[in-house]
Structures are given as structure tokens and as C-alpha cells.
Design a protein around this nucleic acid. Sequence first.
DNA 1: CTCCGGGAAA
DNA 2: TTTCCTGGAG
Length: 240
Amino acid sequence: MSRSGTTARPIEQRGFWLSVYSQLLEAIGPRGWWPADSPFEVMVGAILTQNTAWRNVEKAIRALKEAKVLSPEALGRIDPEELAALIRPAGYFNQKSARLKALAAFLLDQYGGSLERMRAEDTGVLREKLLRLPGVGPETADSILLYALEKPVFVVDAYTRRIFARHGWASPKAGYDEIRLALEAALPAEASLYNEFHALLVYVGQRFCKRRPECEQCPLRGYARVSVEEASPNTPKARR
DNA sequence: CTCCGGGAAA
DNA sequence: TTTCCTGGAG
């Protein structure tokens, strides 16, 4: 076996990740993810929130509810342009309209629109099927698996990768599955744990580990293996 | 890497 | 006014 030298920083100790988790939970508190009235609403939200502020997703979901089209059947029937108009506040409305139509068609075709039947499918198989859908990449697929179906899949996102890179917990070049599989291997396979952990990381990314990091008040201050400058050199300084 | 995009914070 | 938002496809 080759030992390229870029290998290591491999398996973090379980205790380390659990201490990070409890630190965040204690400092920030439960985030109550995913806010929705149904698993299907979670799936729709997972599409709508792609690179989009949640505030704007709420407007779109409200419009879907008012138009009474927040179901696989109704989304399957609605005209794509009409759907695009309804979800306009969430941005990328033409793309997302097509993506929602594809998701609805998938649910109807594969599971007769029943999320119970969908949930009964093997997680790995289901993940592959979701990834084949247009507009469903790794993060969206895993968000659906975790937050809509309560499968123990750790959701990795841009915040996660930024936080991990800055603290020296993972290489900046680490791939999506590399981080996901490492966390899943190091943590108990509990959906409730992954649920809260990811939500807390998003909070840290939004409030502290921003493009210009504000480490002074951050709950993760003290958990870094390296300095921010060392881990990610071109980080902008926070303005005063 | 660029495009898709409205909405609101900075 | 500019920047950024719980990404994914070409």
C-alpha cells in the first residue's frame, strides 16, 4: 500500500466529536430542525432551500399551502409555470419547479405517493435512487433521508466543510462522502444525534464561522487543532 | 468555473 | 449598493 503522506488525520476519536456536539448543544440549545408539518414538506423544503435563505423558502412553502398543492399528487398535476410562479420567492424558480415535479413523479411512480413505503426502503438503495433525480445532489438527498425519513445519515454542507477545515478537523479538499462517512463511523448511528448536530453546525456557520470568522464569541473557540490562519490562509479578517 | 434568482442583510 | 443564502448541473 502506498503511503502518500496526505492520508492521515483519519479517524477522529468518538469522544472528540461527542464533546464538540455537547459543547454546541449546551452553548446554543436545540435548533428544532426540520420545521415542517409533514415529511413531504421537508422534502419540498430541501429542494427549495438549495443555496437560498430559509426565510425565502418559508414564503414559497406558504404559497404552496395556500394554493393547496403541497402533496405529491397535486405537484404531479400542476403546470410547471404555475408552480414556478408560486415558489418565486425561493429563487431559481424555473429549475426548482422542474425539480419538484421530478420529485413528485418519483414518489408517485416508486411508492404510490406513500412516504411510509418510501421509508421502508433500504437506506443505501434509496440514497442512490434519490441521487439519480435531477436537482438532487448529496446534500439534498441526505437532508431528505435524515430530516424527512429519520434515517441515520449525516448531512454535510458548505458550513460543515468550512468549520472542519478552519479547525483542522478535515482537509479543505476533503470530499463530501469522505467527511460524511468519517462522522458516521465515529458517531452512534442515531438520527436524532445527526439531526441536532448538523443543525448546530449550520448555526455556527451562520453566526460565527462566517466568511469573516468571529471566533471570539464562538462556542468552538478552543476546539481548533490549528489556528484559523494555519488551516485556511486567505481568511478575511472580521471588520471592526 | 458559470449559470440559475428573488429577497434581505450588510 | 453589494453580498450572501441550509446546491446542483452543464
